[in-house]
Amino acid sequence: MLVWALAGCGSAVEGEAEPLSGQEGLFDPCTDIPDSAIRGVGLDPLTKERDLVGVEELGWKICSWTGPWYFVVVMSNVYSLQDVRSNTDFTGFRDVEIGQRQGVQYSRAQDQVGASCYVATPVEQGTIWLRVSRMGLHPIEESTCTLATRYGAELETYWPH
Score class of each variant (00 low, 15 high):
34 P>V: 01
82 Q>M: 07
83 D>L: 02
138 H>Y: 15
142 E>M: 08
136 G>N: 11
144 T>F: 02
36 S>Q: 11
159 W>V: 06
152 G>I: 05
96 V>F: 00
106 Y>I: 00
101 R>D: 02
143 S>H: 07
42 G>C: 07
149 T>Q: 08
31 T>W: 13
143 S>A: 06
127 T>D: 02
43 L>P: 06
24 E>Y: 09
3 V>L: 11
116 S>M: 06
80 S>F: 08
48 K>V: 06
93 F>K: 00
101 R>T: 04
111 D>W: 01
142 E>Y: 14
96 V>G: 00
78 V>P: 15
18 E>D: 14
88 T>A: 12
127 T>Q: 09
119 V>W: 01
157 T>L: 13
135 M>P: 14
41 V>M: 10
80 S>W: 13
147 L>I: 09
95 D>R: 09
42 G>T: 10
23 Q>L: 05
42 G>L: 07
51 D>W: 14
148 A>T: 02
6 L>R: 15
62 I>Q: 03
44 D>T: 10
6 L>P: 13
9 C>F: 15
21 S>F: 14
7 A>N: 13
72 V>K: 10
28 D>F: 07
76 S>C: 03
116 S>D: 05
137 L>Y: 13
104 V>R: 05
77 N>L: 03
63 C>S: 09
19 P>T: 03
96 V>A: 01
46 L>C: 12
